[in-house]
């Protein structure tokens, strides 16, 4: 094989690769749009009036997740399934956002941590790599960490809205998450960087709880909240 032939072979490979990436980028853009819509719906829980509407907002978000599922199904057709990690970077960001949104919805509904299986199910994808397009464990964890900072915001705003018991429940939840994350041996990677921010969320919520308890606002809840 001559040098020229070899290079034109490689060039053919590279342009095919670029075409695939272009296709993926298009679908991911649509997916990002949907993710933003869901976020907008869920953002309204921070409004004082939004606290009563949490169930209806969640239902609406759940409906939007149907769109996500069809879009993800579309994304799956754009590349060979065994090359997931080759193009991972393209959807990593949006998948983390979606994992966060799924976790947030589940938290608002039941005040529990979404399991990885549940999150994958909401997004219409698999849990393990062998079965196809899946939710990488690091992406799931990143989504959970985004939710933690959202919850610290929610704790502040729920006090403003006059809901004094919610911060205590959030505090318990976040503390549990924190001890969970402390079990992990993280490398010096993006996930680790994000985890480093968790302590500030924990601190913020503790300050809220502190403010409530010195004013006696959390008193009757204290017995319930701390089990």
């Amino acid at each position: 094989m001559s040098v020229t032939e070899m290079f034109s072979y490689i060039q053919g490979f590279l342009s095919a690769d670029q075409d695939v990436r272009e296709e993926i980028r298009k679908v991911v853009q649509v997916l990002e749009q949907t993710a933003r819509e869901i976020l907008t719906v869920l953002q309204s829980v921070h409004q004082p009036s939004g606290f009563k509407e949490i169930p209806s907002k969640c239902t609406k978000a759940r409906e939007l997740f149907c769109t996500v599922r069809t879009q993800v199904a579309d994304l799956k057709t754009k590349f060979p399934v065994e090359q997931y990690y080759r193009f991972h970077e393209h959807w990593r960001f949006v998948l983390q956002r979606l994992a966060f949104l799924a976790a947030f919805v589940v938290y608002l509904e039941s005040e529990t941590l979404v399991t990885r299986e549940e999150a994958a199910q909401i997004l219409g994808i698999e849990v393990v790599r062998e079965k196809g397009f899946h939710l990488d464990v690091e992406d799931y964890l990143a989504g959970v960490l985004i939710m933690a900072s959202e919850l610290s915001r929610l704790a502040v705003n729920s006090v403003t809205a006059g809901d004094y018991s919610r911060p205590l429940r959030i505090s318990n939840f976040i503390n549990e998450l924190d001890s969970g994350f402390r079990l992990l041996n993280l490398k010096n990677d993006p996930l680790r960087k994000r985890y480093d921010g968790l302590k500030y969320d924990v601190k913020k919520i503790e300050e809220v709880v502190y403010d409530l308890s010195i004013r006696g606002l959390a008193k009757e809840m204290d017995t319930v909240g701390d089990k």
Binding site: L113, E176, G180, F181, L183, L184, N185, L186
Partner: peptide, 22 residues
């Protein structure tokens, strides 16, 4: 919390799985 959560909490149990995987 670690003390009483390590046996019961599903969160901790889930994170133990993640720890292993990572």
């Amino acid at each position: 919390q670690d003390h009483d959560a390590s046996q019961t909490s599903p969160v901790i149990a889930a994170f133990k799985v993640f720890q292993q995987e990572l």
